[in-house]
Design a protein around this nucleic acid. Structure first.
Lengths: 227, 227
DNA sequence: GACGTCCTTGACGCAACCCTGACGCCGCGA
DNA sequence: TCGCGGCGTCAGGGTTGCGTCAAGGACGTC
């Protein structure tokens, strides 16, 4: 869930923003002044900040600098001042976007989405999703399978089949579904393909291929991957 | 030097932008229509795109989608249309900012700086810039490859290919992705390019080019760089 | 205008992969 | 006990994909 920090001293604007954001499943914190904003930002680590420049206790640009001192969280500035200098100052201080009041709620939300989208992949470390079993590990992002410290080579079809099963860990995947996801929508009855490739996977990954622990057959129905 | 791609069909606006940008030490390419824009973006890999939505040959939003298919380069939209829907559509298609004409040059430049700054790599300590293997080292920032104490000469395409692979060290990079990132979005099936250039890289960098250790082929899927 | 560099393109041999059919095993019901 | 359907295994053959080489063309430099 995306967390938004709204900083504005005008209650009606804050309220309008909070209502609209919450309706769209954002988690919202609100601060009426700069000091509270900086404090809340530190405590709650929002994913995006909507900041009105006209605050009672300090200059909005100072809030931007205060945030930029330790975080790259996207900052969307809201301001009644149309002057070009104001915009330039705020943007160069580290703001990501500048919207002048009165603003359209749709546009603001779109700009907010853009800011969040931009920050997502770069923001945190890009951790690969790795599925681990007692016998081997599967790295879905890197397309790597490791067993006893050695990388296991899989053919495209083998990998594709493994991927579908792992993405449904613990769930039964029907034969028809497997065939269609791996071989294409026009397949659905060629269960011999499944038998052959399932055997390959087991031979490459199971400790005892003839008594599979992880690639379980559900007779007449399909297969299931268990960790 | 920051490279900017300006896309606009009105010569006077293009000229004004080009003059202002060049005066501020930006490297500037200009395209009068969408097709040229996509082509130039692929060929020159700009650091930021300034895009007018009103183009003669195709819808500006389509240009955004075309770019977003293979790159995350910041896109700053320029438009005469003030409608909220237009803005929302462009932003949701992947634009980073939306400025309505007439615009102030100062503001536009400030927004451009903000977009570029945002895209910069995280943090100041860039220790990932030099990748070392047993056989050679790659300096991504300096665009240099060193082997046995000597710099290796790489052609632009060779370097580009190497760069994509190194930035995904350990991860499998699909052949389509490689083609699109190196040759441009309209490529995707010309796998013979990959074969030729991968052979060049191996000949220049691998200790035993016929038994590559670092540039691994995953048949039917793509290639992987291993340290 | 000659030269060199780089990108593109085609051809060829070879290895790897995918498909296919045959066979045996097992569990279940007649 | 026999028949049957579903599953696992194996091996062969057609096809695809990869590595390699070499030639042609575009481009810039001297």
């Amino acid at each position: 869930m995306t967390r938004v920090l709204v900083v504005d001293d005008e209650p009606q604007i804050t309220r309008a923003l909070v209502i609209n954001l919450k309706a769209r499943k954002y988690e919202v914190d609100a601060a009426p002044d700069g000091a509270t904003a900086l404090q809340l930002a530190a405590a709650r680590h929002p994913d995006v900040v909507v900041l009105d420049l006209g605050l009672p206790d300090m200059d909005g640009v100072e809030v931007i600098r205060g945030l930029r001192g330790w975080t790259r969280v996207p900052i969307l500035v809201l301001s009644a001042r149309h002057s070009s200098d104001e915009k330039v100052e705020a943007l160069d201080a580290g703001a990501d976007d500048y919207v002048t009041k009165p603003f359209g709620m749709d546009e603001l939300l779109a700009r907010l989405r853009a800011a969040v989208r931009r920050a997502e992949p770069t923001g945190g470390g890009e951790d690969d999703v790795i599925v681990t079993t007692e016998d081997f590990t599967v790295d879905l992002a890197a397309k790597k399978v490791n067993r006893d410290g050695r990388d296991v080579r899989l053919t495209p079809t083998e990998w594709h089949l493994l991927e579908v099963l792992v993405r449904n860990t613990g769930r039964l995947v029907g034969q028809k579904q497997l065939l269609q996801e791996v071989w294409g929508p026009s397949y659905g009855t060629e269960t011999n393909y499944l038998r052959v490739y399932m055997a390959q996977l087991r031979r490459k990954l199971e400790a005892d291929p003839s008594h599979p622990r992880h690639f379980v057959t559900e007779p007449g129905m399909g297969y299931r991957f268990e960790r």
